[in-house]
Design a protein around this nucleic acid. Structure first.
Lengths: 144, 144
DNA sequence: TATTGTTATACTCTATAACTATA
DNA sequence: TATAGTTATAGAGTATAACAATA
């Protein structure tokens, strides 16, 4: 019945996950987006990802990406462009409208986070940032 | 064009979120569960939550909980029980089969995390755990 | 032949509105 | 009157399998 050494870490990560999930859900809903749509837009902001790359980034099947892009394109937030180097691949570009909306989403998240951590001293925020970076790359290790 | 002080923190949190999301997706899929089902089961393991409590925990509408519970109950993983103190509320109990499956899910997550963090010295893990706890409660603050 | 994106299909998740039973 | 859960509905997310175009 004794707890494994990392049990607490697991539960804490799950709790953190749920909080961030709630954060993303409300922020996207306010902009008329689903969380998945908002995240696709974020990944497309400083990249011109292919459908396959988006599927990898979003941890979903490539067939989903078609539908996600369809709905965002229908709203004029992004466009499809065939890659000239390999005409099989299609790349996604944000329109200026999509760029603006994505910016508003990221700003909303940023503002909320800033207010949540406003009472934290700078040293502690830096410490958290450093550990989160390390933890994220540790998790990314091998996608077993 | 200058970055806000917390921009890096935001991006790092998003990255962490995506990694945990991928972790949960693959772990649940291997057990024939959706991530939402797996998380509902986890919340029910050491609680006997009502439908409203589950909706709050899962950050979703209460109408979703009905469907989620329906499908899990159909598979014999949990049961509904009317609360004797207030016959309007229904509480969810795991069956022994549901308990076992939930244990397998949590074990899978735990194992993966342990292997990902195996190279971390104990002191660093403790530091991470401590900061994650603080960060989670900071995020939970007011659900603006 | 292999890969990229698409379509068809089936199921799950999601929120809104209207409803029933209980308090 | 208010609250807990349900139902009906409509739309979105999800994976599998079969397909077209390109490499």
């Amino acid at each position: 019945m004794a707890a494994e050494p990392d049990d607490e870490l697991v539960e804490t990560l799950i709790g953190l996950f749920r909080e961030i999930d709630g954060l993303f859900s409300t922020a996207s809903r306010r902009l008329g987006l689903t969380p998945q749509q908002a995240q696709l837009l974020c990944f497309t902001r400083h990249l011109r990802p292919s459908f396959g790359e988006l599927a990898t980034l979003l941890h979903c099947d490539k067939t989903n990406v078609t539908g996600l892009v369809d709905r965002l394109q229908r709203r004029g937030l992004l466009t499809r462009q065939t890659d000239p180097h390999d005409r099989r691949v299609t790349r996604v570009h944000l329109t200026s409208e999509g760029e603006a909306l994505t910016g508003r989403f990221q700003q909303a998240i940023d503002t909320t986070l800033s207010s949540r951590f406003s009472s934290w001293p700078t040293a502690q925020r830096d410490e958290l940032l450093h550990l989160l970076r390390s933890a994220t790359s540790a998790l990314r290790a091998t996608d077993a």
